[in-house]
């Protein structure tokens, strides 16, 4: 039983990573219908900028963290204005391929600067380790899970209640109709992309705070989980991403604990295929009306 609870606690921390990356991805997907493969790379960019500013330039942890998050937002803004806006919105393939190119570009550019190595990341703060009746956890993990809940619930409430959030949901539902009632769809899309990028950046810093390492190609592994969570939850659903992300983290942690690490990926993949066969719109998704 102790082991079981321990696996659940570790799983929550892993799941938080999935949630933080997926909510931004799913938001952009919902608003723009854009499969942004470069999304998980923003997570990596934030950590490397943090590393560069905080450690190599000796500006300290706080400035480094701010720079990291700002860099993720900036790259997101550049991605939107310089790449996505320049492509015809109806060419789904071109949009996807452009983000694929951006992802390849970012990964290899960063990899060149760090000589294709995995780097150690300094912690944001000194983690304390607790030991309550044989259960181990650290302040880093608590902060990660806590911030994830705050960000995800905050985003979902913001989408539900604030004016911009309502506009965003309108654009997500039907871009053409939103345009007809004079919603500035481009502005809404820009807000969605930048917001998503900033959340990915925050996620990167919080996760690097518990794993203490980062690698330029980490996005390839994170992307897979991001897609799985987004598809199982139903693309566009922030609440769904929160539930499914945490759940997937815990299930994976239990699988690794009891069956071995080779089965870790199979769980997410299997869940995704089953959901697609039974309920293609996802567990929390709305059925799309065609025509």
């Amino acid at each position: 039983m102790t082991y079981f609870t321990q696996f659940l606690i570790d799983g929550l921390a892993i799941g938080s990573l999935y949630v933080l990356v997926t909510i931004g991805f799913t938001l952009v997907f919902g608003v723009m219908g854009l499969l942004n493969v470069a999304h998980a790379d923003l997570y990596m960019v934030a950590v490397f900028v943090f590393l560069g500013v905080a450690q190599d330039l000796h500006f300290g942890i706080v400035l480094g963290a701010i720079a990291g998050i700002a860099a993720a937002g900036l790259v997101g803004a550049l991605l939107f204005w310089q790449v996505i806006r320049r492509i015809d919105r109806n060419r789904t393939l071109s949009m996807f391929v452009a983000t694929l190119g951006v992802s390849y570009f970012l990964e290899n550019l960063v990899a060149k600067f760090v000589q294709f190595r995995t780097e150690a990341v300094p912690p944001l703060f000194q983690s304390k380790f607790y030991d309550v009746s044989n259960l181990h956890f650290s302040t880093g993990q608590i902060v990660l899970v806590g911030s994830t809940l705050i960000i995800a619930v905050g985003l979902s409430q913001w989408l539900r209640r604030s004016n911009t959030g309502k506009l965003m949901r309108a654009v997500s539902e039907n871009t053409h109709l939103a345009e007809l009632v004079a919603i500035d769809t481009v502005r809404i899309m820009a807000i969605a992309v930048i917001l998503a990028s900033v959340i990915a950046g925050i996620g990167g810093l919080l996760v690097a705070n518990t794993t203490l390492s980062v690698n330029p190609f980490v996005a390839n592994d994170v992307s897979l989980k991001m897609f799985a969570v987004a598809v199982v939850a139903g693309v566009g659903s922030v609440d769904g991403a929160l539930v499914v992300g945490l759940f997937l983290g815990m299930i994976e942690s239990l699988t690794v604990g009891y069956f071995g690490s080779q089965w870790e990926t199979v769980i997410g993949l299997g869940a995704m295929i089953i959901v697609l066969l039974v309920r293609p719109q996802g567990l929390f998704g709305k059925r799309l009306r065609v025509g």
Partner: peptide
């Protein structure tokens, strides 16, 4: 056949995930 109910961008997402899953399975 397995993915016959999905299409478009979702299909792309799932094929990425399957590719990655098969790669990791081969590694194990």
């Amino acid at each position: 056949l397995v993915l016959r109910r999905t299409s478009g961008v979702l299909l792309a997402t799932v094929t990425i995930a399957i590719g990655q899953g098969v790669s990791l399975t081969a590694a194990n």
